[in-house]
């Protein structure tokens, strides 16, 4: 366990100056900043919209870009980024000749990629809330301050996080095994397109394709209102089909990757 924590610490230490790490922070910041600027400069168009719908429009603008398009590509990129740092420096041989168990080195790296994706999605939720409230303060005509979406947004982004784990684990393993950028990226991209198409044509079994999970997660998020819940409250259904499949893929690939790493020769 100690080796695992030391490895995790080292993952943070060595990647804190890389694009992979900073992208996790800058991506949500820049995206939400741009959308906020759009709302700010066109505030008069939104003043007549009631608070709840306004939040849905604002958060929806971010979610549509992030969930449908960016999240799968971002997961592919992060999986590549945490592995390429070792490929580039030719450091696998040193990592696997440390007095630390191989599973610690492997699972710390895996967890670090998961943490980066989690961090990004958490920041997406926090920046959406923060920028929304800021817009409400700067332009009192926008009714952001009259409704609270904190809990809903955190749930949506948590669902998105879970839905991205399948892609992340597959891409992690591909990026670990292949030194070059194009193979995992190319495969990831083709699978992602297949996912988009399967969701686009409403294929019944789209949920078996991990690359379709973030899109499906957004489609399936609206839960059923229980009796007695006020109509102004949004109910989010986190654990849907697609999320379960994503978690299952994650678990299977993680364990398979562990055995591959145990047996793999280090060039």
């Amino acid at each position: 366990m100690k080796g695992f924590l030391l490895s995790l610490h080292s993952e943070f230490y060595k990647s804190r100056k890389t694009l992979g790490f900073w992208a996790s922070i800058l991506l949500p910041f820049i995206l939400i900043l741009l959308i906020s600027i759009g709302f700010y400069t066109h505030a008069d168009k939104f003043t007549h919209i009631p608070a709840m719908l306004l939040w849905l429009q604002f958060a929806g603008a971010v979610l549509n870009i992030m969930g449908a398009l960016l999240l799968p590509m971002y997961a592919i990129f992060i999986a590549y980024s945490v592995n390429s740092i070792e490929h580039k420096a030719d450091t696998w041989k040193t990592l696997f000749s440390l007095p630390i168990a191989k599973w610690s080195v492997y699972s710390a790296k895996f967890l670090y990629a998961v943490i980066l994706v989690f961090l990004t999605l958490l920041l997406f939720a926090l920046f959406t809330i923060g920028f929304g409230d800021l817009l409400g303060l700067l332009k009192p005509g926008l009714k952001f301050l009259e409704y609270h979406t904190e809990w809903v947004l955190l749930q949506i982004y948590f669902k998105l996080f879970l839905s991205a784990l399948g892609i992340l684990s597959i891409q992690f393993l591909l990026s670990l095994l292949w030194t070059d950028f194009l193979k995992p990226m190319g495969i990831g991209f083709v699978c992602f397109i297949a996912g988009v198409i399967s969701v686009g044509v409403n294929w019944d079994y789209a949920y078996i394709i991990p690359y379709a999970h973030p899109m499906l997660a957004l489609k399936s998020m609206m839960g059923v209102h229980k009796r007695g819940t006020p109509p102004t409250q949004i109910v989010i259904d986190i654990f849907t089909h697609d999320v379960f499949v994503s978690l299952a893929v994650f678990a299977v690939v993680f364990v398979a990757g562990f055995f591959i790493v145990q047996k793999k020769s280090v060039k």
């Binding site: 030391l6 490895s7 610490h9 080292s10 230490y13 060595k14 100056k17 890389t18 740092i85 580039k88 420096a89 030719d90 450091t91 041989k93 040193t94 000749s97 440390l98 630390i100």
Partner: peptide, 22 residues
């Protein structure tokens, strides 16, 4: 082994510090 395994984006001290963490 072979070429030294060094993280190019870190300084010499940081390379050692990273190994020192491990």
């Amino acid at each position: 082994i072979e070429q030294p395994a060094i993280y190019g984006h870190l300084t010499g001290r940081e390379n050692l510090q990273n190994r020192a963490i491990l």
